[in-house]
Amino acid sequence: MPEGLAYTLEFTEERREATAGDTPVRVSTSLRGRHLVSPEMLPDADIVVVGTRADRIGRLPSARSFVMPIRVHFVLDVDQGYRSVLANASKGAKRDFRQQYRKHAWEFGAERDPSWFDFFYDRIYRATMIQRYGDHARTESRDSAYECLFRSGALFHLSMDGERVGGHLCHWDPGSGVLTSRLLGVLDGAEEYYEAGVLKVMYFLLMEWAAENGVRRLDFQGTEAFLSKGTYQMKRRFGTRVILPPNHFGRKRLWLQVRRDTPAVRDFLVANPLLRVTDEGTLHAVYFHDGERPPREDYRAMGPGVEAVHHISLDEFLAGCRHDGRAYVA
């Protein structure tokens, strides 16, 4: 699946670089469906990750492997009012919001002026993506953002002390009452606005606006199903429920299998606890550990949508693995 290159591969390369300290190198080849029937034909690697449809995942072996979502979404039911929404947010998130909210004069609202869309696209959204991700930035095209989101959706502005410093473009489905977060950012992608809490304030004010304007559910979109992903940890603090994506990603899965037992593999697994999908379609969190590496429980998992937490000993999980000096993830 081409989406795997843009999501899963980039994330695992980034995390591998963080844990192993070296720069990943990509080597491309072509695979066919028959490789799922004979996984020994897949590339020889320490960890193999295969993306495929959910109805095909049963063809792959279960030994030293997990079935994961390719992505998860974070949703918030707001039809019971803003007080109910606030009650479910974490104490830390509410404390941060209140502290930041008192420091400045904030103004939040919807905007229909096409000239504001142009400003948002160039100076806020695109500037933020480039500033944050550089060459890895994935941006929605201007035409698509205008025609598919702005014209039928909702574009919000956030002002701090009289200056518009943030924006948020959402998809709106009046039939289901779902408002979906799509594009957002801060003015020029500047770090000073992150430090001022612009994004956190904007999320809370969007939650309040949605609860007061006929929205049934907020969908904060998603991220990779690894608890070490910063987006995962940030969005769960709003009291959201973790779900399989309500789009085509919900019908896709990742199969992750460990082929070799090396120190680098153990470092990677412990540093990146994950979500697995059970046969019943529920989500469980998985933390790895061994005698030298405690589980990374600072990456929180429990909350609405995560039905169980498992702590797995690497000594038991990797029993029977090959051992050699190579250490790479493909």
Rank of each mutant, 00 (worst) to 15 (best):
residue 77 D to N: 13
residue 62 S to Q: 11
residue 65 S to M: 00
residue 40 E to R: 12
residue 78 V to K: 11
residue 88 N to T: 14
residue 54 A to F: 00
residue 45 A to C: 10
residue 63 A to N: 05
residue 49 V to S: 11
residue 42 L to N: 03
residue 59 R to Y: 05
residue 57 I to H: 02
residue 64 R to W: 01
residue 81 G to H: 03
residue 78 V to Q: 11
residue 66 F to N: 02
residue 45 A to F: 03
residue 44 D to W: 06
residue 75 V to P: 01
residue 86 L to A: 12
residue 44 D to L: 10
residue 43 P to D: 12
residue 52 T to L: 13
residue 81 G to K: 04
residue 40 E to D: 14
residue 64 R to S: 01
residue 58 G to T: 14
residue 49 V to C: 11
residue 49 V to N: 09
residue 74 F to W: 05
residue 65 S to D: 02
residue 53 R to Y: 11
residue 69 P to L: 06
residue 64 R to Y: 00
residue 52 T to K: 05
residue 47 I to S: 05
residue 88 N to V: 04
residue 56 R to K: 13
residue 72 V to H: 06
residue 44 D to F: 05
residue 58 G to R: 14
residue 69 P to S: 07
residue 83 R to C: 04
residue 58 G to C: 09
residue 63 A to Y: 00
residue 61 P to Q: 10
residue 42 L to T: 11
residue 67 V to H: 00
residue 84 S to K: 12
residue 92 G to V: 07
residue 61 P to S: 13
residue 77 D to Y: 03
residue 51 G to I: 05
residue 74 F to A: 10
residue 81 G to V: 06
residue 60 L to P: 00
residue 63 A to F: 02
residue 55 D to R: 13
residue 42 L to D: 03
residue 43 P to M: 14
residue 86 L to R: 15
residue 50 V to N: 03
residue 41 M to E: 15
residue 54 A to I: 09
residue 54 A to L: 11
residue 43 P to H: 14
residue 74 F to M: 12
residue 68 M to G: 00
residue 83 R to H: 07
residue 82 Y to A: 05
residue 42 L to R: 10
residue 61 P to E: 12
residue 77 D to E: 14
residue 75 V to T: 15
residue 41 M to F: 09
residue 59 R to L: 15
residue 84 S to W: 04
residue 44 D to M: 06
residue 46 D to T: 13
residue 60 L to K: 05
residue 76 L to F: 01
residue 73 H to M: 01
residue 46 D to I: 03
residue 87 A to H: 12
residue 49 V to Q: 12
residue 53 R to V: 10
residue 65 S to Y: 01
residue 63 A to Q: 11
residue 69 P to M: 07
residue 47 I to A: 07
residue 59 R to V: 13
residue 56 R to W: 08
residue 53 R to A: 13
residue 66 F to P: 00
residue 74 F to S: 06
residue 65 S to G: 11
residue 86 L to S: 09
residue 81 G to L: 04
residue 62 S to K: 13
residue 40 E to C: 05
residue 60 L to R: 06
residue 80 Q to W: 02
residue 74 F to N: 04
residue 77 D to S: 14
residue 58 G to I: 08
residue 46 D to Y: 01
residue 63 A to M: 05
residue 72 V to T: 11
residue 63 A to L: 05
residue 90 S to E: 10
residue 88 N to F: 03
residue 46 D to M: 04
residue 79 D to T: 08
residue 78 V to R: 11
residue 40 E to I: 06
residue 74 F to D: 07
residue 84 S to G: 09
residue 91 K to L: 12
residue 51 G to F: 03
residue 72 V to F: 02
residue 68 M to E: 08
residue 71 R to T: 12
residue 65 S to L: 00
residue 49 V to I: 15
residue 43 P to S: 14
residue 70 I to P: 00
residue 87 A to L: 08
residue 63 A to V: 03
residue 74 F to L: 10
residue 88 N to A: 15
residue 56 R to N: 10
residue 70 I to F: 00
residue 74 F to I: 03
residue 66 F to E: 01
residue 82 Y to K: 04
residue 42 L to K: 11
residue 62 S to V: 12
residue 57 I to D: 01
residue 71 R to V: 06
residue 66 F to S: 02
residue 86 L to W: 04
residue 44 D to K: 13
